[in-house]
Amino acid sequence: MVKNLYIILVLVGLGFMFYTFADGFESADKLNPVAERYAKQGPDEVGAANLVTAVVVTYRGLDTLGEVTILFLSAAIVAFFLKVTYGEEEKRQTRSVSEIMQTAARLLTPAVFLLGIYVFINGHLTPGGGFQGGAIIASGLVLMLLAKPNMKVSHTLIHVVESISGLAFVFIGVLGILYAGGFLDNSLMGMGTLGSLLSAGVIPLIYIFVGLKVGAELSNIVAHLQESQNEA
């Protein structure tokens, strides 16, 4: 009883705080100085048409590296927790997947993978980028697993892709120290013209590796969650 009262108090208090903040909310008329600098200098300094990408990959590139590391860590912990014991092959009983689902998955999976690749290759020009593209690729794997619940996912392939792209990301960053302005500086390669595919220095390259890495990590998590259903 007292517990319920506390919960109500917390929710009402927080709701009141939120409400007073949101009620008179007026969005700003102009950008704050940091954002203004990014907007004015970004196109020339970084060369990416998508300014969010410029912030994510170049201005805050170290944050992105940390973020990829956190994702790797959570994928590794999931893999550690759901370690599969390949003992007696007792398949879990699943309802047979409907014809529509199987055909649609066969038709759509290549298109989903292609869309993911498109999204991360064009990350510096259009909305999207490595993380979103990687998530789309992993969702293609989810579709495949829904159509074939007992499919085996190759962990070796996932680990190879993940390790190579992670190493390449750091390697590009270190090359930036040696040959350009600093760690993850994108002026390592030519800037190109603003808005074309081969522009913004190494951003497309970094986003390709980020996309592959995120796709591999999320696929790894999904595959481990699927396999752990076979035990129990």
Binding site: A28, L31, Y38, I70
Partner: peptide
């Protein structure tokens, strides 16, 4: 660009936060 766009920094932060939330 500085006059017509929304602030890109919160968007970049949310991009990060979505991925961490997923993990």
């Amino acid at each position: 660009a500085a006059d017509v766009i929304a602030d890109p920094i919160p968007q970049a932060l949310v991009l990060t936060a979505i991925v961490i939330g997923l993990g």
